[in-house]
Every structure is written in C-alpha cells, then in structure tokens.
Write a protein that binds this DNA or RNA. Structure first.
Lengths: 218, 218
DNA sequence: GGTCATTTCGTACATAGTACGGTAGCGTCA
DNA sequence: TGACGCTACCGTACTATGTACGAAATGACC
C-alpha cells in the first residue's frame, strides 16, 4: 500500500531530501527528524537505508561533487579546467554548507573520484608532466575551495548587502582601520561591486600560473 | 577560596580551554561539559562569561587568527605576504577544525580585522592600487584557505600514511582510474612525498600572480 | 559580623542521534 | 486459502547536548 501514498524510500531519495533541507535551512537544520518530515516518513525509517547521519553527510558531499561538470580530456586544457573551476564554484555557491562538510569527511565518494580522475586526465593530456599535474591540481582546488570559503564567510548576505556592511565598518572603525576604510569607500561600496566578480580575475591568474607549470614541467 | 585551587574563570581562560579541547579531540569533542571539565568547573559556570556556545566558537576563530603573524607594511611586500601566508597555513594546520568554523561564523573578531588591515596596508604600501589590492587579497586568502581545506580533508592522517592510502587506491581501482593510479605510483608513493610541500610551490606561483596584479594596477 | 554583588553551581527541559524491538503489508508455498 | 516470513516502516526510550532558571557560595566592604 506504500506505493500509493508515496514512492518507497531509497537511499537516493534520502540524499536528495537531505540536500533540499540543507539548502533551505542550512546544515544545522538537517536533523534526522527534519529529514524524515521532508520525506513524509518517520525518523527511524531513514535508518533502514543509511547506517547513521555521518553516512548521509558523506553522501551529501558526493552529491555536490556530482553537480560539478567534468572536464573533458579531449578538449583544450585551459578551456576545460576553466569550465571546471566555474562549475565547481557555482556548485559550492548553491550549497554553501558543503565546504564545512568537506573539512570533516575524508572518505571520497564516487563522484569525487571521477572528478579527480577527469581533471588529472585533462591536465596530462594537455601536456602537464605527472609532477606538474600534481602541483596544478593542488593549486586549482586550493583556489576554488578557498574562494568558496571566503564567499560563504562574507559578513551575512550576498552581493548587495556588502555595501551596507562596508558602510558600518567605516563608521565604526574609521580611524582604526584606514586601509579597510579606503578599500571600502573606493572599491567595495562603489555601485556594481560584487565580490563574486573577483572569481574570474583570480581564475585567469591561476590559469596563467598553470601554464607556467605546464611549460616548465613541474 | 577559589584562588587557592584554581584561578578565577575569565572569558580568556574559557577560550584557551576551548582551544585545547578542540585541538586534542576535534570540534565534536568540544561541548560545554567537556570544556567545563577541562577548566575544572561545572558547566553552567561558563555561561557567566559567554552568552552561548556560538560566542565561544566565534572567539575560537579569532583566537586562531591571532596566531597568524601580521605582515609589516614597512617591509618588502612579497616577503611580507609570503610570510603571512606561511604563518596562516601553519595556524590552520595546528587547528584543522578552524576552517570548518570559519564557514559558519560571519562575525569577524578583532584579530581578524587587524589581519585584514595589516595585509591591505602591506599591499598598498607595496605599490598595489586599491583595486589591485582587492584582487590580490581575494587571491591570497583563497589559496591559503583552500590549501588548508585540502590538507585537512586528505584521506586520514598526515604525510606518511599517504603512501599507504595511495597503495590501496591503486589496488582497488587500478583500471577504473588510470590517471590517479599514475600519479599515485609515480609521485605520491615516491619516498619523501609530502602533500604539504605543494604549499610552497603554489605560494610562489600566487606571489608571481600578485606581481602581475601590482604591475598592471588591477 | 552583616549586607551585597559577583561568581559558581544544581536541577531540569527541549532537542539531537539512534538502539531495540514491534508491526504491517507483500510474496511464497503448502 | 491460509500460514509464514521478508522487507519496509514505526514507537518507545535512552543518552548526550545546549542552556534557562533560580539557589547557593564566595569575597568585598561597612
């Protein structure tokens, strides 16, 4: 009779539900009980498909990774890696809680592994030596993850409010932090400013750095 | 009679205790009760000095920031920024839980602000335009934070065990992940490999990129 | 020594994860 | 057709956590 009222539960449905809960309410809002409610089920039903909450969290991380476009080893490396970076950043922006999760979960899921593989393939095919590919990989992910960390830990909201925050900083600290005041007034508070735009600038610089690595072979 | 058996509690003592607990047992081990035990006090005593646990976590983040050497605006920018990057990475390595915390706490503490200010000062004094300094700042922190994220999410342990993990990956996935296998056998499993060494390589590349920003003025 | 402010604690409650065993709907075989 | 068992789901309850609330202990000052 279960199929009539709702689809039967699956591990996948659980993960998708967890993703939805985390996206709307943040990681803190994701409890077994809230997840069960989201799924239209009682809490303990979940435990038929996952051993514990940690397993759900591991699954979530992999879910996010699976949203990242894989680079194609046949394509031009710079293009492909650039696309992958943009895609990764977009995914981490859609799911700002993901970075914090990644820190604690050290068991890579299938999507994570595929991503590693595809990226390494693209680099190697693009003319990077093994060692250069290793260096490149560390740099790429450092930049993408680090940017995501900064983006999610920006004081409160998204783009627009930044101006407001900057104004407050200025008013409160003015004399104490002259350089912050300077950058706030002359840059951050300017109309059209969006921290997210920094991503493209840094990305191009990182890609240039990769080219250096590629040419010098490590 | 308290001064005989122990110093009186202070907000600072609480934060230092919390840092100790988190360092030895990870963030999960940091509970009000465990913290109280560490301090030789009953749980509710803590609440006389902090409003809630979140405030402790905010304090912890700032505590970690305070361990990062401030760059000196009078020094040569490349030298100073480099030192700051190394110092930041070292701090984040000492306190691997800090990155995950940073994601959620968006209220910067005094140490965080000082660090921002000193870094901006160094860049501006070093010849970066306002806009270039903004770009530079985003790039620097992205790299440092992102590297820390990667470092803490490395499968399990520190340096040495990496070789072991790589072997397992190889055995398990061999055919499925040829490029990962390649990099594992030819690089990661080589004696003396340490992921941490990647930091210096990426750091130099980032510093080169900063020089580009500086010269072109944004 | 009495009063008061400060600091510490005891108790208790809501919410979290989840162990354990029960139950209900389905297919299978006699 | 009915007994049985398997799978999916649920009810109850235990433990740990953050923390509200008010009591108690301590030290300062008259």
């Amino acid at each position: 009779m279960y199929e009539m009222t709702r689809e039967t539960l699956t591990r996948d449905r659980i993960l998708r539900g967890a993703l939805a809960v985390a996206d709307t309410g943040g990681l803190a809002a994701l409890t077994i009980r809230s997840l069960a409610t989201e799924l239209g089920v009682k809490p303990m039903a979940v435990y038929h498909y996952v051993a514990n909450k940690d397993e759900i969290l591991d699954g979530l991380v992999d879910q996010v990774f699976s949203e990242i476009d894989l680079p194609s080893p046949e394509g031009e490396w710079r293009e492909e890696i650039s696309r992958r970076m943009v895609s990764a950043r977009a995914a981490l922006r859609r799911h700002p809680w993901a970075i914090a999760l990644m820190e604690s979960r050290r068991t890579p899921g299938p999507a994570s592994l595929s991503r590693h593989e595809a990226t390494l393939a693209t680099l190697r095919q693009g003319g990077f030596s093994v060692v250069a590919a290793a260096h490149a990989y560390a740099l790429i992910d450092s930049y993408v993850y680090g940017f995501a960390v900064q983006e999610t830990s920006l004081p409160i909201g998204r783009p627009e409010e930044m101006g407001e925050v900057a104004r407050e900083i200025m008013e409160t600290f003015e004399g104490a932090y002259p350089y912050m005041t300077e950058i706030a007034t002359e840059h951050v508070m300017q109309p059209g400013y969006d921290f997210g735009d920094e991503f493209e600038i840094g990305r191009e610089l990182v890609l240039d750095a990769l080219e250096v690595l590629r040419r010098r072979g490590g």
